[in-house]
Amino acid sequence: MGSDQRKDRMRFLCAAVIAGFLTTSAGVGAKELVIIANKAYPADRITREVVKEIYLGERTMEKSVRILPVDQVDPVVKKRFVEVMIGTSIQKYEAYWFRKTFRDGVVPPVLRESSPEVIQFLEREVGAIGYVWGDEALKKSGIKMLLSIEVGD
């Protein structure tokens, strides 16, 4: 093996170590929000735009199933969801729903206290869709994941 080859191998190893370090450090603390639904929900994938339409009451049906969006009372996960997915603040989101319900007669998202309660509700209702932190949705049998979004620390 010539010295050039050794230098190339060293450069490759260094690059791999640095890349691995950067990847790992970026992953540490990066939280993942997942959009989940009942296992029989009539879609297997969903886009961010559709999630926004559902949580703003603009899309209420999926095929012939009424969509039942679920919101969390937990202000940490709700704040992150509303800011990242809806693009507004909790205060404006709630004011929007107050008007929307009155104007169009559309019921706002169901409220659940915590992620386990959201998952329990989703397991029962075919049209139910909700959001939880990624690690909270692992190994749950009655639900499926439709979308995953990294939302930072």
Partner: peptide, 13 residues
């Protein structure tokens, strides 16, 4: 007073 209820594909306002 304003109330709305939904069940399946039905609603009452």
């Amino acid at each position: 007073f304003f109330g709305v209820n939904q069940f399946d594909q039905f609603d009452v306002l």
